[in-house]
Amino acid sequence: MAWRSRAGSWVAWSGATGAILPHPGAHRGFLLHHQQRCGFRKVAKRVEPKKEAEQGELVQKRGVAPPVEPPTPQLPKRSFRRLVKPLVFTVGFTGCSFGAAAIWQYESLKSRVQSYFDEVRADWLDKLRPQKHGDFRKQVNQWWNSLSEGQRTVTGIIASNALVFCCWRIPYLQRTMVRYFTSNPASKTLCWPMLLSTFSHYSLFHMAANMYVLWSFSSSIVNMMGREQFLAMYLSAGVISTFVSYVCKTATGRLGPSLGASGAIMTVLAAVCTKMPEAKLAIIFLPMYTFTAGNALKTIVALDTAGLIMGWRFFDHAAHLGGALFGIWYVLYGHELIWKNREPLVKIWHNFRTPPKV
Rank of each mutant, 00 (worst) to 15 (best):
G322W: 05
W13T: 09
W215V: 03
W3A: 10
A302Q: 02
M1T: 11
G29H: 09
K357E: 07
T274M: 02
G322Q: 00
T17A: 14
E69I: 04
S216Q: 10
P257M: 04
F217Q: 13
I157A: 13
H27K: 09
L204H: 06
A302V: 03
G15E: 02
P24M: 05
Q174H: 12
A324G: 08
I284R: 10
I157E: 08
P257G: 01
F315Y: 09
R78D: 11
K45V: 15
L235P: 01
S97H: 07
V84C: 07
S203E: 08
L83M: 01
H206Q: 13
V358A: 14
A44T: 13
V113E: 14
K357W: 03
S200Y: 08
R152H: 04
A302P: 00
R179V: 15
N341W: 00
F199M: 12
C273F: 05
S148P: 03
L32T: 14
G311I: 03
C191A: 14
R37T: 15
S241R: 04
N184Y: 14
C167Y: 01
L125N: 12
T90P: 05
A279Y: 07
S203G: 09
E48G: 13
K127G: 14
G39M: 08
F181M: 06
G323E: 00
L214E: 03
G8K: 00
F217P: 07
L231Q: 03
G25Q: 04
G92D: 02
L325D: 03
L231R: 01
L21N: 11
I309Y: 04
R62H: 09
R169P: 06
A318C: 02
L255V: 02
E336V: 07
T182D: 12
E228K: 01
G256E: 00
G263H: 03
F352I: 05
A44Y: 13
Y330G: 01
A2M: 11
S220Q: 03
A232Y: 02
H335W: 10
R342V: 14
K132C: 11
G18D: 00
K61R: 15
K138C: 13
A232F: 04
Y246I: 02
P22A: 06
S203Y: 02
R82A: 15
V301Q: 12
L281H: 07
H23S: 08
V11L: 12
S111E: 11
Y202G: 12
G95Y: 07
A264R: 01
Q174D: 09
T267I: 02
M276N: 13
L190F: 07
T290G: 04
S187F: 11
G226L: 00
A44Q: 14
E107P: 08
T72E: 15
T72C: 12
L204G: 14
T155V: 12
G322E: 01
C167W: 00
E149P: 07
R62F: 10
A101Q: 07
L303Q: 08
L32Y: 12
L163T: 14
T90H: 05
K51V: 13
C96T: 15
Y212G: 11
H133K: 15
I309M: 08
K280Y: 11
V222D: 13
A208Y: 10
H206V: 07
A12T: 10
G39F: 10
I309R: 06
V64E: 13
G322D: 01
P277S: 02
F205P: 00
Q35I: 15
N161V: 02
K42A: 15
L125H: 11
T299D: 08
M266V: 06
T242P: 06
E149C: 04
E69Y: 09
A237L: 01
A12S: 12
E336F: 10
T299F: 13
